[in-house]
Amino acid sequence: MLLEATAVVMEFGSFRAVNGASLTVTEGDIVGLIGPNGAGKSTFFNCVAGDLTPTSGTIRFKGHDVTRATPEQHARLGMARSFQVPVTFEDMSVAENVMVGAFLRHGHRNAARRVADEILAFCGLDTLANARAGSLGTPGRKRLEIARALATEPQLLLLDEALAGLTPAEVRLAIDLVRKIQQRGITIVIVEHIMEVILSLTEHAVVFHQGKVIAEGPPRQVVDDPGVIAAYLGGSMKRVRTQIS
């Protein structure tokens, strides 16, 4: 088991954003986290990434307990992430952004540059290597964030709505990139709104609702689950049925 989150609870004051969610991810998987707005996906995701320390529950990564570990310890262990709203280092060039990631495992500038160049080519950013990161548009920034994360040579990549805000054509390109990343042998957990992405990309989908996991399994099966439909459309299945009839 690569990642094992058990009974994670995250409270903000009296509000329980995540209420006992569990998730296991095996090596080589692409796992999709879906659910309506405010379901607690991103909060759960931030607990896994080490940005938030859960109120209770445990998170294990590669056998290490990382429940209370800092984000930099997560990175060192081999977990990388993107952000919902991309945070690129605006004043640096695209290549320099990626080098920051590469420096984690390569102390020397030339080695970091070599890794960065390889990753930039892999992500299709090589032509933009010398552009200022601040000059990129949203698709470019999202791609750059993924490239930067890959440069840390992770085993697990967490993507937080990496495809949100993209046009359909850009989404297809991004899906191709995520597939290529998986073929590199990197396990992926992706938080996503767009159902099409989850259906075409993942082998395993986990549905969040009100801070809990309400269904999981192969994505086709999960989307037909009555509980899931109710969560997305609101109200109980019974009421939906009676309204229809």
């Binding site: 990434a49 940005d51 800092t70 984000p71 930099e72 997560h74 990175a75 060192r76 990388a80 992430r81 952000f83 945070v87 690129t88 280092f89 920051v100 990631g101 984690l104 930067r148 994360a149 440069a151 840390t152």
Partner: peptide, 9 residues
């Protein structure tokens, strides 16, 4: 935040 996620202490 982004720096820490890339392992920068």
């Amino acid at each position: 935040r982004a720096a820490r996620s890339l392992g920068v202490p």
